[in-house]
Amino acid sequence: MKILVVGGTRFFGIPMVNALLSAGHDVTIATRGNAKADFAGEVKSVVFDRTDSDSIKRALSGLEFDVIIDKIAYGSNDVKALLENVTCDRYIQMSSCSVYHEDHADIREEEFITKDHPLKWQDRLPDYPETKRNAERAALEFMDEASCTFVRYPVVLGENDYTGRLRFYVDHIRSGSPMYIDDCDRAMSFIHEKEAGEFIAYLADHPCDGAVNGCSNGVIKISEIIDYAEKKIGKTAILDAAGDAAPYNGLTDTLSFNTDKARGIGYTFSDLGDWIYGLLDNCNACSVLC
């Protein structure tokens, strides 16, 4: 199939593109032209500003695609600028589990119904959850829901995570820097970068209508992350209300997501415990090297 990937040159976009290439797809990458990646195969490329409808129209004129994977849909106007200038049989949007309104365990896709959300044509907002809700809803102005897939992930972690969220804990323990954690016993789900990319690629060949959650099986408490890092480093974390605010503050309940829908199309996610501690070891090693 001919697949247009909007974004995809860093983090879990790289294993996603590599999986598409491995499956034999004809892949075109659309970027602003500032980033390049070493993919495991040949890809075509186009350059445009995804916030500029005219720029997209010029770049994609005469091109046709079976599938569009939109990895950087950050607002309804982003989606409008793209989909008013290109057609496809299936549109896969990288959304977010932040579209859900309440934190709790085993959140299901139907807890946020895309078509019921009131659409506002807006640029990227400081309110990230609302931005992503609008981005999902905007797609339905151009395509049937049966032709759209909205991939909802929790926090994505991995060796190439440029945000440094997991490493925050390791670095603070190693350096003896105080950190503020609002609830050490709050548990949450994650997904590994490789699986995050590969699942989206899987969806190109295994259509899934509407929203679909993706995350590793199981949850981990912040206290478990800290305990493991303390033992590996040989130091005790300094917890202080005046310390640096930890990345995962603000949860109101255990946060996990039901993946029955993904399993229904044949995809089984890994267990969180199979990789999270190895990733913490990697964070520790990087801290030593740095």
Rank of each mutant, 00 (worst) to 15 (best):
V6E: 04
V6H: 08
G7C: 07
G8T: 05
G8V: 05
T9N: 15
V17N: 09
L20R: 13
L21C: 13
A30H: 12
T31L: 11
R32T: 09
R32K: 12
R32D: 08
G33M: 02
N34S: 11
N34F: 12
A35H: 08
F39P: 11
E42K: 10
F48K: 07
D52T: 14
S55Q: 08
I56E: 02
K57I: 04
A59S: 14
E64M: 13
I68F: 04
I69V: 15
A73I: 06
Y74G: 09
S76F: 03
D78G: 03
K80P: 14
K80D: 11
T87E: 14
I92K: 02
M94Y: 07
M94F: 11
C97S: 10
C97H: 02
E102S: 09
I107H: 11
D116G: 08
P118W: 05
D123N: 15
D123F: 12
R124W: 12
R124E: 13
D127G: 00
D127Y: 01
K132F: 05
K132N: 04
R133Q: 00
N134C: 00
N134Y: 01
M143W: 09
E145M: 04
C148W: 02
R152T: 03
Y162N: 09
T163S: 14
G164V: 03
G164L: 03
R165W: 01
R167T: 07
F168G: 01
H172P: 04
M179R: 11
D182S: 10
D183L: 06
D183E: 07
K194D: 13
G197M: 00
E198R: 10
E198F: 06
F199H: 04
F199G: 03
A201K: 05
C208R: 08
C208I: 11
C208F: 04
G210E: 00
V212R: 09
C215L: 12
N217G: 13
V219Y: 04
V219E: 08
I226W: 14
A229Q: 08
K231G: 02
K232L: 01
K232I: 00
T236Y: 10
T236Q: 14
A237E: 08
D240M: 10
A241H: 14
G243W: 05
D244V: 12
L251V: 11
L251K: 15
T254L: 14
D260L: 08
A262T: 08
G273L: 03
D274H: 06
I276H: 03
I276V: 07
L280V: 07
D281S: 04
N284W: 07
L289E: 14
L289G: 04
